[in-house]
Write a protein that binds this DNA or RNA. Structure first.
Lengths: 347, 347
DNA sequence: TTGAAAGCGCTAACAC
DNA sequence: GTGTTAGCGCTTTCAA
C-alpha cells in the first residue's frame, strides 16, 4: 500500500496552522515567526514532505525545467553537449528534459510542441538536418519562450528571446589546413561534407581561404563533397590516389570519412604522415585510437552545452540575447606531424 | 508581445458554452452533440489550442512522462538504449525526461527525487556504479511508482511494480570464449573489469566456464582485473607477453582495453589473429574501425531500451512485473577469425 | 445534451 | 505573524 504523499495541507492541519503559513515557513519567508518556521520545517522533515512540482508550475505559470532538443544522441558530440547542459542547468537549479528529433522535421515539430506544453522555462535546440520550414520556431518566438540554438542554428531567425551558441567552423578548418601547410604539405585535398549544410560550407570556406592565405592554388579536383561516412571517405581517397598529381595531405570535414581514407592509404602502402598527412574535424573518440592517431579539430562540445545554458539563464533574467561563437582547438596528433616529432621506436 | 495561450475557458466563452462542455468535446466524449463537437474542434484548431499539460497532470494526479535515469551518456551504449527508450515511449504516446547520475550516488538520489516530483508515470533506471545505499529506491517502491531497471539492476530489490531488463553477460562471455577455442586458441587470457561489479563478474564466470566446457585449464595468471581503459589494456598486454608461456588469444570484458592490447601486440610484431586472436565486449563504434576490426559481443542496446519501455507499459496496465534477460550476439570480425576466412590481398 | 461547482496542491494579495 | 480567499487550467461528479 503506497503511502500517500504528504501535502502542505497535511502539515497545516497537524500543526493547527493555515496552509499559507506553512507555505511561507517552507519558503523561508521572513514574515513568519522563528518558532513557527522551526516547527513547520521539522514536521516537514519528519513526514518527508516533497513539494508537488506540478502544482507549483501550474501556480507560477512556468517550471524549473529546461527543454533540450537534439537531432540524435549517437556519436560523441551531442552527448557531450547534453552533458554540459545537464551540468550547468543542475548547478543553476534547473532540471533538463531531453528530446530527440532523429533528424526529422516532423518529429522536431512535435517535440517542440510537447516541450512548450510540458511546460519548460526555456528551450535549447540544435536543428534537425531535414528542417526546411521554420514556422514551429516562429511559434516559439511568438510565445515569448526563451530559445537558444546550439551548433545548428537558423541563420535568419532573431528575436527578443533568441540566442545562439555555435562554433567557428571557418576558423577550425583554417587552423587545420594552415597546420598542414606548415608541416610542408602543398597539395591538400578536402573531404567536404554536404555543402548545403552551413557547418560544412563554412569548413570548406576555411579550407579554401587557408590555401589562398599561404599562396597555394585552390584545385577543384582535390575537393570531394561526400557524405561523412567511412566508406565514402575510402572511395574518395581511392579516386584521389588515381590523380596524375595525387595529394600530399587530406583535410576532412569529419573524422569518420578520414578513417576510411587512412585505411585506403595504408592498404596502398603510403606512409602517414610522411607521404600523406591527415587532419579531421570533430575529435571523435576513435581518432585517438587509430594508428597513427588522427589530428583533428576539437569543438569544445561540453563547454558549448554550458555556454548555451548560460545564455538561456541570461535571457531568463531579462538580459539581451546574444550570438556566441566558440573558437575551436586544433589537436595535433601523429597523423599530421612531420617536423619536430620524436624518432619512431622501430627504424 | 507574446500572444497569450488560449485556454478551454477562452473557447467556451467565444462559443457561449461552458468549459466542461468544451473539455468533453475535445476529449471526444460521446455525450456531447455532434454539432457542438465540430464547432469546438474547429475553433480550437483555428485558435491553435494546446492543452496545458501541467494542469492536466495536476488534475489527473499523474503525467504522460517517463523518467529515465542513466549513469552517463558517454560512449555508445547508453545513448543507444536511450534511443530505444525514446522511440518506444513516443510510439506509446509518452514523452521522456532524461537525467544523468554521473555515476554518483548522491546525484542519483537527487534525480530520483526530482523525477518523482516531476512527476512521471514511471521510472527507467540504470544504477550508478557508486550506489551502495538502496534506500532511495525503497522510497520509489513505497510510492508505488512503476520502476524498470535496465542493464544495471539491484539484485535483491523486487516488488509489486519493479521489473528489470538486463543482458546475459555470462552467455555473451561464454560465446566469445567458445568461439576463440573453436578458432584453435588454447591459452586464452582475460582482461576482466572490476569484479565487484555484477556485469564484469558474470563475464568472468562465462569466461571460466567456457574454458572448462572445452576441457581447458583456468590459469589465474592469465586473468587481469583492470579498469576498462585503453592504457590499462596496453599495460596488461605487455605483462601477458612477458609470461614464459604467453597467451594465444585475449578475451576482454570491454572494447577499450582491447584496443590497448591490440596496439601493444602490433608494436611487438605479433600478427592478429594468427599469433594472438582478440575478442571484446560491447560493440563500441570503434571496434569496426581498427585494423583488424575487432570481434565483439553486441548488447542489443537499442532493443534493451525498447524492452524496458514495454515492461514499464505492462506495469502501467497493472500487469505483473518481470525480469527480462536479453541474449547478446557475437559479432565475429577479423581479429579472431583464423579459419574459413578469405586469403589476405597482399601475401 | 449541457451547465454549475468542486477540487487537484500550491502561492500571493489582501485582510486582521 | 497569521488566516482567509481566490485562482492557475483542467476534468469530473452531480444536477438540470
Amino acid at each position: 500500500m503506497p503511502a500517500r504523499r504528504v501535502s502542505i495541507g497535511d502539515i497545516a492541519s497537524q500543526l493547527n496552522l493555515s496552509p499559507s503559513t506553512v507555505s511561507r515557513a517552507l519558503a523561508h519567508n521572513p514574515d513568519v515567526s522563528e518558532v513557527t518556521r522551526q516547527r513547520v520545517q521539522q514536521l516537514a522533515q519528519e513526514l518527508g514532505y516533497q513539494p508537488n512540482q506540478v502544482a507549483v508550475a501550474l501556480r507560477r505559470g512556468h517550471s524549473n525545467t529546461l527543454g533540450v532538443l537534439v537531432p540524435h544522441l549517437a556519436g560523441t558530440f551531442f552527448p557531450e553537449v547534453v552533458d554540459g547542459i545537464t551540468e550547468a542547468a543542475s548547478q543553476a537549479g534547473y532540471n533538463v528534459m531531453i528530446c530527440q528529433s532523429r533528424e526529422d522535421a516532423e518529429q522536431e515539430r512535435k517535440n517542440l510542441e510537447l516541450l512548450m506544453n510540458a511546460p519548460v522555462a526555456g528551450l535549447l535546440v540544435s536543428l534537425a538536418s531535414a528542417t526546411q520550414d521554420y514556422a514551429p520556431f516562429e511559434a516559439v518566438r511568438a510565445a515569448g519562450l526563451p530559445l537558444v540554438f546550439f551548433d545548428r542554428a537558423i541563420e535568419g531567425l532573431t528575436g527578443e528571446h533568441i540566442s545562439s551558441v555555435v562554433i567557428d567552423d571557418y576558423a577550425g578548418a583554417h587552423m587545420a589546413v594552415s597546420h598542414l601547410v606548415e608541416q610542408g604539405c602543398r597539395r591538400i585535398a578536402h573531404l567536404a561534407g554536404p555543402l548545403h549544410l552551413a557547418i560544412y560550407e563554412q569548413r570548406h570556406r576555411g579550407y579554401e581561404q587557408a590555401l589562398r592565405d599561404h599562396g597555394l592554388p585552390y584545385d577543384a579536383e582535390l575537393v570531394c563533397p561526400i557524405g561523412q561516412h567511412q566508406l565514402n571517405g575510402a572511395a574518395a581517397m581511392r579516386q584521389l590516389l588515381q590523380l596524375s598529381c595525387p595529394p600530399d595531405a587530406v583535410f576532412s570535414s569529419g573524422d569518420l570519412a578520414l578513417v576510411g581514407a587512412l585505411q585506403v592509404l595504408k592498404e596502398s602502402g603510403r606512409r602517414v604522415p610522411d607521404d600523406v598527412a591527415l587532419a579531421g574535424f570533430s575529435n571523435a573518440e576513435f581518432t585517438a585510437l587509430t594508428e597513427p592517431p588522427l589530428t583533428t579539430v576539437d569543438q569544445h562540445s561540453h563547454q558549448m552545452g554550458r555556454e548555451a545554458v548560460n545564455q538561456l539563464l541570461r535571457m531568463l533574467h531579462a538580459d539581451a540575447p546574444a550570438a556566441v561563437v566558440l573558437r575551436p582547438q586544433l589537436l595535433v596528433r601523429a597523423s599530421s606531424q612531420r617536423i619536430g616529432r620524436a624518432q619512431p621506436l622501430v627504424s
